[in-house]
Design a protein around this nucleic acid. Structure first.
Length: 181
DNA sequence: ACAAGGATTCACT
DNA sequence: GTGAATCCTTGTA
């Protein structure tokens, strides 16, 4: 699901973002996942039915969102890491302060800020009928790059970050500070 | 009850 | 490249 999501559009009101970078997270078999140690109050959305948004607060300041992609009972999510604002440029600029256009949604926290996605969107269904909607890209991407996930301190060799190669809206890769030596 | 640390971003050097 | 901001979740006692 993760590479297939590249090129899709996430919309909230006037602002729409074309996704160019995502990461996959599993459940019990993936130590880097919030769901690695079983169901908790925070990660319960990941165990729910697919098509819902798992939103969480990172580092006490930034929101990030995942699309739940597995059947109910099996935890999994695809973290939406970066994209290009393709509609609602003026609104997105206002929300993102002094950022240049390229950085409006370049990074998971920035993407949520540009789209005004926050705690109130935790668990909402995004495949139709709601305020936030995901439209799958057609056709699916023909070329997809993959590599290690950003910011995780375990499972550093699992190549579950996917992006559109060469796309300027892909975020900078940064190795986990904890994985650094 | 407490301590640790994070699926990040930004300003500054 | 470095460091700070900031608060919630989780493991452990």
């Amino acid at each position: 699901m993760a590479p297939a999501l590249l090129g899709s559009t996430l919309r909230h009101g006037d602002v729409a973002v074309r996704l160019v970078e995502v990461e996959a997270y599993e459940g019990a078999t993936d130590a880097a996942s919030h769901a690695a140690r079983g169901r908790t109050a925070r990660n319960e959305v990941m165990f729910g039915p697919p098509g819902h948004l798992y939103v969480y607060l990172a580092y006490g300041m930034h929101y990030a969102c995942n699309l739940v992609c597995r059947p109910e009972g099996t935890a999994a999510g695809v973290l939406l890491r970066a994209g290009e604002v393709v509609e609602g440029l003026e609104v997105a600029r206002r929300r993102r302060g002094r950022a240049v256009d390229r950085d409006l949604a370049r990074g998971p926290g920035r993407l949520c800020q540009a789209l005004a996605i926050g705690a109130e969107h935790k668990g909402i269904y995004v495949l139709g009928g709601g305020p936030v909607t995901l439209t799958l890209g057609t056709p699916p991407p023909t070329e997809v790059a993959r590599g290690p996930r950003v910011g995780v301190s375990v499972e550093v060799d699992r190549p579950w970050r996917f992006w559109l190669p060469g796309d300027p809206y892909v975020s900078d890769y940064r190795r986990s500070p904890r994985a650094r030596r």
